[in-house]
């Protein structure tokens, strides 16, 4: 754009000099020739002005479009980063929760601190009416392929499930445990947050 303006300026100066030169050289000639020269110069200046205007308009429009696109791009980035951060916070919130039995299940279950290889860390206080899983995993995320789910409906089957979890656990890794309820409609509800059984304890079993 700057280059074009400079060219435009040089052309105008050139035309003015030409016009002036013609004028001084042809003082004795007819005034018609001077008029024609000035007219041609004026037309050229006009054409050039239009061309500069068009180019400026195109450049400005292009810049405006690109600036608009840039703003749109930054908005998209901002939105996707925000979405990801929200998802991250939700997951961290779940993972950061300390072990507890959910309030709806405190009558049915309680924590047993005197657990060992044959006694699970959860106690059933009342007869259960739904289906339950003891979920054990080396993954905090309970990913399939690293997680064992064992069905239980009473204290005896919970003890069997606990033994199975211990038997199949990788003793060199911490074990995360949780209880899930499956109701008659198939709705899955978390009964407890993750219970951590560290590998040091696990090795003694």
């Amino acid at each position: 754009m700057i280059k074009l303006s400079l060219q435009f300026f040089i052309v105008i100066i050139f035309l003015l000099f030409t016009a002036c030169g013609n004028n001084s050289n042809n003082d004795t000639n007819s005034t018609g020739t001077n008029d024609e020269t000035l007219t041609r110069a004026a037309i050229k200046i006009n054409d050039l002005t239009v061309k500069v205007h068009d180019t400026t308009f195109e450049t400005t429009s292009g810049l405006y479009t690109k600036t608009d696109q840039l703003l749109s791009d930054f908005t998209r980035i901002n939105q996707s980063v925000t979405d990801r951060m929200n998802a991250e916070m939700q997951l961290l919130t779940i993972l950061a929760k300390p072990f507890e039995i959910k309030s709806n299940y405190t009558n049915s279950f309680s924590e047993n601190n005197n657990f060992n290889a044959t006694v699970p860390p959860f106690t059933i206080n009342t007869p259960l009416t739904n289906n339950y899983f003891l979920v054990s995993s080396t993954s905090k995320f309970y990913l399939q392929g690293r997680t064992i789910k064992t069905f239980f409906i009473d204290s005896a089957s919970l003890t069997v499930a606990w033994s199975k979890a211990i038997e199949n656990a990788n003793k060199n890794k911490d074990l995360y445990l949780s209880l899930l309820e499956i109701d008659t409609n198939g709705k899955v509800t978390q009964v407890t947050n993750s219970f951590l059984l560290n590998s040091e304890t696990l090795k003694t079993y």
Partner: peptide, 9 residues
């Protein structure tokens, strides 16, 4: 990961 049924969430 958050919606993993094993997390019960």
């Amino acid at each position: 990961l958050t919606g993993n049924a094993n997390l019960g969430s």
